[in-house]
Amino acid sequence: MRPMDKLLEVKNVTKHYPVDKGALAKLFTKKPKVVHAMDDVSFFIRKGEVLGLAGESGCGKTTTGRLALRLQDPTAGDVLFKGQSIFALPPEKMRQLRSKMQIIFQDPFASLSPRMSIGKSVGHPLEIHSDLKNSAVRDRCLEIMEKVGLQPAEFFARKYPHQISGGQRQRVVIARALITRPEFVVADEPIAMADVSVRAMILKLMTQLKEEFDLTYLFITHDLATAKYICDRIAIMYLGQILEIGPLVEVFKNPVHPYTESLLAAVPVPDPKFRRQHPIPKGEIPNAIDPPSGCRFHPRCMYAEKRCALEAPGLQTVSGDHQVACPVRMRS
């Protein structure tokens, strides 16, 4: 593959958050404790692709999304956008790049200022990123609002967030993210707060907008069933590491990592006749301050061998794009 095909590349990124300790603890312990939010995470996203990033709460998926946009700085590693390191960019250059990289958050109510009309909120990024005149901003604003289904746009532009429904609010947030014509969008659990009937609508809208605006998504979700409808590839995270990554259909049909297998088996199926075949692992995600040695999933893994506690497995290729960090299952 030519390097330019990769729109975004995350290279060996590590992000540790220091744990604040009391004064006494600081005096008596030598090594500062850290939360291992991301440990040596690498992946890339091709232009026009949707990469899903899935895992349970606290696995580091949101941190990964934030670092991909340089909303935070890494402890180590680099992120390349079109081959250019975003952490090496001077502030002014980074500011210009931000119009090309946008984010959609989970809670559309918290993401919108209650004091700004919808029209003002949607147009705000353009006021920051362009020198367009007010009337031009307004035109672009109405245009994008029509595109996301806020019709008639003139009517919605005058409303305030509390006057519209949850589904409409999420449309507003999407319109605001797209008004600067970004190439890359991080969608961080964009439908987790929405009701079922609204979810389907937002997923469809995002797919349609992706085609229309030639977008590339990093789609962060805890819900694998949802990921199925939008993602081309999927990465499974656990305690700050990617355990499996590959084309979605292949990973779902043939999950290799025991954690992926469990995660897929645990999803409740809307069919009363369905009975779960695969056993559910015991326990919960361990503490990210002091993660288990070796493979981080080994204490809960039904296939674990002695060496799993000793060596940390890296991602190895199963076939083509499909990579897994589990030497035990790869062998069989």
């Binding site: 694998l224 069933a225 779902f252």
Partner: peptide
């Protein structure tokens, strides 16, 4: 309508 809009993990 509700059932038709529920995501299902089955491919």
């Amino acid at each position: 309508g509700l059932l038709a809009s529920v995501p299902n993990i089955k491919l």
